[in-house]
């Protein structure tokens, strides 16, 4: 994760420091492109439709994978008709959004898409 290990951010004392911080964080964000990035919508609507256990499962399983990965909880993408949604970006690939993800589908995403690049019919956006 970005700024891993640091509990608190240091107080920016002047504009130069802020600009420095901003450009550092942008660089760290760019560095994420070499990792598997999993974004799980965790807004009220997503949690109500079951995103909680899905998030927990990704957290648990992904750390055991040989691939470097980052799990991010986000707000909602606006795709209420398909919540819970999970967006996966593999290194060098366009983001792919999976819809109506439950624990079973989450395992399929990890074992199938992330490990082997397999496609599923519950991909709702990107690279179908």
């Amino acid at each position: 994760m970005i700024l891993n290990g640091k509990e608190k951010m240091e107080r920016t004392k002047n504009y130069e420091e802020f600009k420095h911080l901003s450009s550092n964080l942008k660089k760290e964000k760019e560095a994420l492109s070499s990792k598997v990035v999993v974004k799980i919508a965790m807004a009220t609507c997503s949690i109500a439709s079951g995103a909680g256990p899905v998030f927990a499962l990704f957290k648990e399983k992904m750390s055991k994978l040989p691939k470097e990965s980052v799990i991010v909880q986000t707000g909602c993408l606006g795709l209420c008709h398909s919540e819970p949604t999970v967006e996966v970006t593999l290194p060098g690939c366009e983001p792919v959004v999976f819809g109506k993800v439950d624990v079973k589908r989450a395992e399929m995403i990890i074992d199938g898409y992330i490990m082997k690049g397999e496609k599923f019919d519950f991909i709702i956006e990107g690279n179908q």
Partner: peptide, 19 residues
């Protein structure tokens, strides 16, 4: 930024031109 950043991490927002 909705659905793209972690709302509980200010670092994510700053990295998207935040502040």
């Amino acid at each position: 930024n909705c659905g793209h950043i972690d709302p509980e991490r200010i670092e994510d927002y700053i990295s998207c031109d935040g502040y």
